[in-house]
Amino acid sequence: MKRSIVCRCEDISEEDVIQAIEEGYTDIEELRKKLRIGMGPCQGRVCIQLVARILERKTGKKISKIPLPTVRPPLVPVSLGTLACENDEKEI
């Protein structure tokens, strides 16, 4: 069967999301923690809206009522070596 990918970073498909919703994970944070959607390098900018939409379709919860997870700093990946530099002026 062809998988339609919703989270590219973590390789999670629409079918995976639907299965988890059917198992009772009906909150976007619960789905995120179960499937790791949104935990990849893009931090969910690609996938969270898609997952929210699937959740809306499956549960009937309105999308505006689904709380979206917070994006956590840093906004782009930074190396530990860079962060460890004493006098580094780099913004995160």
């Binding site: 840093p74 530990l80 070596g81 962060l83 460890a84």
Partner: peptide, 30 residues
């Protein structure tokens, strides 16, 4: 709110314990 002081202190100590991790990217912090 997460702080930069943590990130700096953490990466300094972590790379002191395991220097090879210098080249590894930090992704998230909460």
């Amino acid at each position: 709110m997460p702080t930069f002081a943590f990130l700096q202190h953490m990466s300094q100590t972590l790379t002191r314990y395991a220097p090879v991790l210098k080249h590894v990217n930090l992704l998230r912090h909460w």
